Amino acid sequence: MQTEARQADALYVLGDLFDFWIGDDDDSHFAQSIKSEFKALTSSGVPCFFTKGNRDFLIGERFCEQTGITLLPDESVIEIYGNRILVLHGDTLCTEDVRYLKFRATVHKPWLQWLFNRIPLCIKKKIISKVQADIHTEKSTKPLEIMDVTQSEVERVMQYYDVKLMIHGHTHRPNIHKFATQNHSHTRVVLGDWYTQGSVLVYDNNGFELQNRPF
Rank of each mutant, 00 (worst) to 15 (best):
R6V: 14
Q7D: 15
A8L: 11
A8P: 09
D9A: 15
A10Y: 14
L17M: 13
F18A: 03
D19A: 05
G23V: 05
G23A: 07
D27F: 07
D27I: 11
F30G: 11
A31Q: 04
E37P: 00
E37A: 05
A40L: 04
G45T: 02
G45I: 02
F49N: 05
F50A: 01
T51L: 10
N54E: 04
E61K: 14
E61H: 14
R62A: 12
C64S: 12
I69L: 15
I69Y: 08
T70A: 09
L72T: 05
D74W: 00
E75K: 10
S76I: 01
V77K: 08
I78H: 01
E79M: 10
L88F: 05
T95E: 02
V98K: 01
R99G: 00
Y100I: 03
R104H: 13
R104L: 00
R104V: 02
V107F: 12
V107T: 08
P110Y: 12
W111D: 12
W111A: 12
Q113C: 07
W114Y: 15
W114G: 09
F116D: 06
R118L: 14
I119G: 10
L121M: 15
C122E: 14
C122S: 10
K124M: 03
K124S: 03
K125N: 04
K125G: 04
K126T: 06
K126G: 00
I127S: 00
I127F: 01
S129F: 06
Q132R: 15
D134L: 12
T137C: 10
S140D: 08
P143Y: 03
E145L: 08
I146Q: 01
T150G: 03
E153K: 15
E155G: 01
R156L: 08
V157S: 01
M158K: 04
M158E: 04
Q159A: 03
Y161W: 11
D162L: 00
V163A: 04
H168W: 07
H170A: 08
H170R: 03
P174A: 05
H177K: 09
A180V: 14
A180T: 15
H184C: 13
S185F: 03
T187E: 10
V190T: 11
L191Y: 03
Y195S: 07
T196Q: 10
V200Q: 03
D204W: 01
N206S: 15
N206I: 04
F208S: 13
F208L: 10
E209V: 03
R213D: 11
